[in-house]
Nucleic acid binder design. Structure first.
Lengths: 153, 153
DNA sequence: TCTTACTTTATAATCATTATCAATTGATAA
DNA sequence: TTATCAATTGATAATGATTATAAAGTAAGA
């Protein structure tokens, strides 16, 4: 069976890049933390556990490379840090995010909710859409539940 | 007639802040460049023309303050800079953006296209939406027109 | 083995933003 | 007006993320 890493290796080769040990270690960390939204620093600290000799600059370069190849997406939630998010295999568009203003959690919506909206934008604004970023800011289900359980004061 | 500046002055006073000359100069620049998406540095350079003694830190502080009061929105298009965008008066939500990958232009969609989508998200993910960010990346109408006029090679 | 291009590491440099602190200003009461 | 006190400002230092640089390492082909 072909693993996810194998397929990423092929994508690199197709663009004439090698899957060096450092790059592989970085990709493994991303795969192991698919749910999270890691900053370059986060990735660096995690990669150091499995490849202690790696340098921070290499992590940055690798993440940049993976972004170029659309294997990961680089996002920015407004704190001063870029975060890196593995794209679903075969996904044409970037998934959406729910950022909780109370607890800071970031949840993902894999489903594409923008089909209709994109149709409108393409037609009405004569804009040829290549990708999108959609983030909702608000109160997540966890915090919602918690506050509805609170006794009224 | 009450001007836009007057109303902003009231908003500041309501939160017990003053409209100092520096703040006023900064707001004027934002009003004069409503269509643009200025970085703090951009604003600083423009403000210096009408208030030469102003400091960069004051501009940052003012933009931060205006963001807190929801008079402007702070956005980030992925280059390393925050940009500041006047909110439409009375708008509950932030407007959408079209970023052209070819010429870099940033156009605005004032209309709220997310009504239905937000309904779905609130119900299905039990997420209480406070605000949103929606940006499309693609080719703008100007570049579309230009390339359709190009002779096929 | 030799060559060449690619990659990495460590570190310095850059750039946006934030913190600090003394000086200034504005509003208010005496 | 003057005294007072908190808010605000400007200059500058500090921070923190990211990028550039240069020397050394690595892999693959001739």
């Amino acid at each position: 069976m072909e693993t996810r890493i194998d397929r990423i290796k092929k994508q690199l080769h197709a663009a004439s890049y090698k899957l060096t040990p450092q790059r592989e270690a970085t990709v493994r960390i991303l795969l192991d933390h698919e749910e999270d939204h890691l900053s370059a620093e986060d990735v660096y600290l995690l990669v150091k556990d499995i490849a202690p000799e790696i340098g921070l600059a290499t992590v940055y370069r690798t993440l940049e490379l993976l972004t170029e190849l659309k294997i990961v997406d680089k996002i920015n939630f407004g704190d001063g840090v870029s975060r890196y998010d593995l794209r679903q295999e075969g996904a044409a568009h970037f998934h959406h995010h729910l950022v909780c203003l109370e607890c800071g959690a970031v949840d993902e919506i894999q489903e594409d909710l923008l089909g209709d909206v994109e149709g409108v934008v393409e037609k009405r604004w004569n804009f040829q859409i290549k990708d999108h970023r959609l983030t909702f800011h608000g109160i997540c289900w966890r915090c919602n539940d918690r506050s509805s359980q609170d006794p009224p004061q």
